[in-house]
Every structure is written in C-alpha cells, then in structure tokens.
Design a binder for these strands. Structure first.
Length: 270
DNA sequence: CCCCGGACCTGGCGGC
DNA sequence: TGCCGCCAGGTCCGGG
C-alpha cells in the first residue's frame, strides 16, 4: 500500500489534525512492529507540541518542540486512522490531541516502524544516511541514473527499487514509470540508453505527482470520523493488470523479479 | 561493492 | 463451510 505518494498523502492528512497541537495522551497497545518502539516513546511524546510534519522517502516525520522527531514507516500494511470508531488489535499506537482528536497507527503485518530521532541528527540517522535523493526533488536527473546504472547487470526494475539510488519508489510506481518510459523491467541497468533515461526521469516524477494529486483529492474524506490515511484508489496502466489489454492492443504480462511481481506490456516495453 | 534469495508477519482471496 | 496455497504497496541480512 504505502509508497511515496501514500506516505505524502498520509502526512498531509495527519498535519490537518496534528500540526501545532499538543499530544495529550499516548497509548501503546503493542510496543513492537519491525523493531521495538523506543522505550520512552510515550513519555517523550506526552505533552509535546507538534511543530510540523514532513516526509523523507517512505518515512513520515512528526516534529516536536522537544528536539525529537517521531519517524514512522508504514511497511506494507501500515496506515493512520483519524478518529476511529473503535480500536482494534492492529491499532498499535494511539495518540490523542489537545483538541480531543484521536490518531491511530494501524499495521496488520507489522512491517512498519516507529522511532524517535534527535531532530538535529536526522540526516545522520542510519536509515536516512543511506538514502538516495528524493525522486521529486532536483537531484533526480537522467545523469544521476546514468551514473547509478553504469555497468550494472541488475534489472532496471530492481535498481529503481533500491532506496540508495532513488529514495521513495516502490513496486507499483516503478512498474508504472517503466511502462510510461517504454522500458522493459528486466533490462539490465547498464543497458538503458541515455535517451530512455531522459524519458524515465519525467515518467517517475509524473506518476508520483499524479498519485499525490489523486490522494489529495480524497483527503477531505480523512477529515470524517473513521477516516483512514494511506489508501486511495487509483487506476494503473499495468500494475495488477496481468492478462488485461494494454492501450496498444498488447496484453499485460507479469514476471517475478526479486521475489516480487512486475507488470509490463511486452509490446510497448523493450 | 554487487547480486540474489530468504526472512520477517498477518490477512484476504480463489480453488477444491 | 473448511482447509490450503498463493498473494500482498517494504526493508534487512547473510552467503556467494
């Protein structure tokens, strides 16, 4: 579920309820996801004021006035719920604001994470230090990809999923971006031509931006009770469409790369 | 450094 | 209805 656009949409939705607010209470129902929660999580957040929210790659950041930032990752199944009607067994962390709004971090598969990081050390926090540039920022250029792909025999699909090269892409949007750029997902990285990289970079930015806009358009739903952040319906050109027709008349195929499904049109993508 | 496969965890869905 | 295998939007680690 959560790739960059979903995390971005989640952060924006959380901000409407959290930004500037004091966290009145913190309830930890299960203190570990991928790794244990910080032992002092509740103590550190209770009474803190949220000074802003942001995103880095697929991580959401909740900044506080205590020089510490709560960093969350949604893994495969994580989502934030706003004012949920009930708290279930997968609602692992529940925050209440000074205004009485309730925010619940729900993650059935528990691949997500919650960390507290000193706000002035975010850049050097190990998970962040290893990340490549933001795909929507100025640093993702055809030249950057050319450098990262040079002499690599790994499939371009897998290289684009490598967060050290570009930070924030996931399975869905890599499939969609490669489709738009007409590049076959199994092509060796080092064999993607400069002209194709010039198509691929704007394709990546476009699929992400369009999805953020689509997510934003559903944001108003999140203001309702039981709104769930992190999920919005989109229609994809190839993702999840094995066997369905491509606009070109071809048929979408599925292959497995790195243990994960890749969808593509063999007629469009070479 | 690179490449690959498997592990982590739970739930939903389709087939029999 | 029940059981079983397959699938799922992401990292992370270890062996070659």
């Amino acid at each position: 579920m959560p790739e960059l656009p979903e995390v971005e949409t989640t952060v924006r939705g959380l901000a409407t309820v959290l930004d500037g607010q004091v966290i009145r209470s913190v309830r930890v129902n299960r203190a570990d996801l991928r790794r244990p929660f910080p032992v002092d999580l509740a103590q550190a957040l209770t009474g803190a004021r949220v000074t802003g929210l942001s995103r880095r790659a697929k991580y959401g950041l909740i900044h506080t006035d205590r020089e510490r930032t709560m960093v969350f990752h949604l893994g495969m199944s994580g989502r934030w719920r706003i004012d949920p009607e009930d708290i279930g067994k997968h609602d692992h962390l529940v925050l209440e604001t000074g205004e009485g709004r309730v925010l619940s971090l729900n993650d059935a598969r528990r691949f997500g994470s919650v960390d507290l990081v000193d706000s002035d050390k975010l850049e050097s926090w190990p998970p962040f230090a290893a990340l490549g540039p933001e795909p929507l920022g100025p640093d993702l250029t055809p030249k950057l990809l050319a450098g990262a792909f040079k002499d690599r025999i790994a499939a371009v699909k897998l290289l684009l999923l490598d967060q050290r090269i570009v930070a924030g892409l996931g399975n869905i949007y890599v499939c969609e971006a490669l489709y738009r750029a007409r590049v076959h997902p199994a092509r060796e990285g080092g064999r993607v031509k400069p002209a194709e990289l010039k198509l691929l970079v704007p394709a990546i930015k476009a699929v992400l931006e369009e999805s953020i806009v689509a997510g934003g358009s559903t944001l108003r739903d999140y203001a309702r009770p039981d709104g769930e952040l992190g999920y919005f319906a989109k229609d994809f050109n190839v993702y999840g469409r094995e066997g369905e027709p491509c606009a070109c008349g071809g048929t979408v195929e599925r292959i497995v790369q790195g243990g994960r499904s890749s969808f593509f049109c063999p007629k469009c993508q070479k």
